Amino acid sequence: MNAETPVTRDLLRSMPLPQPDGDGDKEERGRVLVVAGSVEVPGGALLAGIGALRAGAGKLQIATAASIAPHLGLALPEALVAGLPETPEGGIAPDSAKRLAARAARCNAVLVGPGMMDEPAVGALTAALLTMLETPSFVLDAAALVGLGADPAPLHRHGGRVVLTPHAGEMAALLGCDREAVDADPLGAARRAATRLRAVVVLKGGCTRIVSPQGEAWAYHDGSVGLATSGSGDTLAGILVGLLARGATPLQAALWSVWLHGEAGNRLTRRHGPLGFLARELLAEIPAAMAELAG
């Protein structure tokens, strides 16, 4: 099988993002549902939600633990924020799946995982949503990846309409191997996961690999060290789901989001230095980077 293809400006210009009609409204740019956050990490939902809007999604809903929902609603007035029953650990209870599925069925793209810390509950909730829903595209991040390696059947129902965004440790759990094995052959690990799980895989790292279910592979080498900071993965997942809502294919959204996320870091590095910028600061860079590449 061929080696990985670099993710470059020229590559992305060859696969332009869907653009809204000049007379279109926010519905044309798609609806996003972000299922995220917990009592311990409410900010994951905030970062992912802003990321979806910065990527151009038209309407945003956030579903989160009931006790933090009012705070998120104030922090992000652009979103509809729904509070759901909590587990004792402060996460979303798995028996919220039916309520969530009804909400998600009206959306174009759904993100599950940022800031969710109760792994057993998140795993059960994710499997239930994948089983109940037919139409939206999914991005699964962080704790939402738990359990998928042991039982990929819910993923297989979606025929490649799911994007997974693991780091090396999460990839090891998906494949049932040691992290050292993933670090030794990240491209091979990403290919195994994409083929086995029938999903687009974004294996995050100093060099991020993007692999299709057919094993085609791309690599983004041009990110900065400052991207390795708390909350950075939440912003990437949000950008990705926003592009999906606009009508990008899962592979197209994965490639564009990785480049936009990296370019945002490069812009901040040039202005502020290689370290010390915040994940939240990446998001304001996305619209200009996107417009520049589309122009």
Rank of each mutant, 00 (worst) to 15 (best):
P120T: 02
A184W: 12
R209T: 12
R196L: 07
R191T: 00
V200W: 01
P154S: 06
M171Y: 04
G205N: 10
L140M: 09
D183I: 10
V162A: 00
T195D: 09
F138Q: 00
R157A: 14
A109G: 15
L133Q: 02
A127F: 07
D151P: 04
L111P: 07
R196N: 00
V146P: 01
V162I: 15
G123N: 06
A173F: 02
L174A: 05
R192W: 06
A184Q: 09
A150Y: 10
C207V: 15
M117G: 13
L197A: 06
A172N: 12
P120K: 01
S137N: 14
G149T: 10
D178Y: 07
A121Y: 00
T165E: 00
A194S: 13
L155Y: 11
V163K: 11
A194F: 05
D183K: 12
R157M: 04
V202H: 05
C207N: 09
T208F: 05
R196A: 14
V182M: 09
V122E: 06
L155G: 13
A121V: 13
R191P: 01
L187H: 07
P120E: 12
R179I: 06
K204E: 04
H158R: 06
A124H: 05
P186E: 03
L111M: 04
G205L: 00
V163G: 12
A128H: 04
E119R: 11
L130S: 01
G159C: 15
R196K: 10
S137M: 13
G205P: 03
L197V: 08
R196D: 01
A194D: 02
R196G: 06
R157V: 08
R179S: 07
G206V: 02
F138C: 08
C207A: 15
L140Q: 03
G176M: 04
R179T: 05
L125R: 06
L174S: 08
G113I: 03
P154A: 12
T131W: 12
E180G: 10
A168W: 12
A121P: 03
A173S: 11
A144C: 11
M171D: 00
T131V: 01
L140V: 11
M116E: 05
V146R: 11
L187V: 05
G159F: 08
R198K: 12
A144F: 13
H167W: 05
A128S: 15
L187A: 01
E180H: 02
R191K: 10
E119T: 15
T135K: 15
L203E: 05
A143V: 11
L203Q: 08
R191N: 01
G113H: 03
A150S: 14
T165H: 03
G115H: 10
T135E: 09
N108Q: 15
G188R: 06
P152V: 06
G123R: 05
C207H: 08
L164I: 02
R198Y: 02
G149W: 06
T165P: 15
S137I: 03
A168P: 12
A189G: 01
P154I: 02
E180W: 10
M132W: 10
L125D: 01
V162L: 08
V163F: 06
D118R: 08
V182W: 02
A109V: 02
A168V: 10
H158C: 12
E170W: 00
A153P: 08
G188Y: 12
V182F: 14
C207G: 08
L155P: 10
M117P: 07
R179D: 00
H156R: 14
